[in-house]
Simulated scan of single mutants.
Amino acid sequence: MRFRYPVTIALVLAAISSPTASAATCTWTPTILPLPAGMTTGTVYAADSGGGYAGVASGDGATSHAVRWSGGTATDYGTVPGYGPYVSVKGVNRNGVVVGSTSAATGNRQRAFRSVGTALQALPEPAGANHSWATAVNDNGDVVGNIGADVTIGGSSYLVNTAVLWPANAPGTVVELTAGLPTTGQTIARGVDQDGTVLVEHFPTTTSFLDADVLHLWRAGSARALPAPSGASSVAGNAISNGRVAGGSTVLGDLSATVWEPNGTIVKPAAADYTTSVNRTGQTVGWKAGPSLNMTYSVWQGTTKVGTYSGRWGLTASADNGTVAGWNRTAANSPNQPAYYRCL
Rank of each mutant, 00 (worst) to 15 (best):
A46E: 08
I16H: 14
V67C: 07
V143W: 03
A179G: 02
G322H: 05
Q194K: 02
R114A: 15
Y86Q: 14
D211W: 01
V306D: 02
G78V: 06
N93V: 13
A112M: 06
G307S: 00
V245D: 02
G148I: 06
P6D: 14
Y297D: 13
T250K: 04
A332V: 12
S310D: 11
P19T: 01
P171Y: 11
S157K: 15
G231H: 03
V116N: 15
V151G: 01
N279I: 03
P30W: 04
T258R: 00
A228G: 04
T20C: 06
G128L: 08
P167N: 07
L165M: 09
D142S: 01
T27N: 10
L255Y: 09
W287C: 00
G253S: 01
A232I: 04
D48P: 01
G91D: 08
T323D: 13
S298K: 14
V143R: 07
L344M: 09
F209P: 00
Q337P: 04
A112K: 05
S132A: 09
S256E: 03
G52A: 08
H216I: 02
T250M: 06
Y53A: 14
S222H: 11
V87A: 09
A270V: 13
R219T: 10
A239P: 02
S233R: 12
A225T: 07
W69N: 15
V80Q: 13
T29D: 01
M295C: 04
K305W: 01
G61A: 07
T162V: 12
G322C: 00
A228D: 13
E176V: 10
G51E: 12
F209Y: 15
T63L: 07
G38M: 12
S249C: 05
S156F: 12
I266Q: 00
T178K: 11
P269R: 05
G264H: 07
V324R: 05
V98A: 08
I266W: 00
G61I: 14
Y83D: 09
V116W: 08
S256M: 06
P30F: 06
G145P: 08
T27H: 07
S17E: 15
W133H: 10
P167V: 04
T250V: 14
S115E: 09
K90P: 08
M1T: 06
S318N: 03
Y77S: 08
A136S: 14
L226M: 06
A325D: 11
P30L: 06
R190W: 11
T75N: 06
T187Q: 04
G314I: 01
L177V: 04
S49G: 12
Q121A: 15
Q283L: 14
G59M: 12
V285F: 07
N108E: 14
T323V: 10
E176G: 13
A74N: 04
R114C: 07
A163R: 03
W300R: 03
I147W: 02
W166D: 11
I266R: 03
T135N: 15
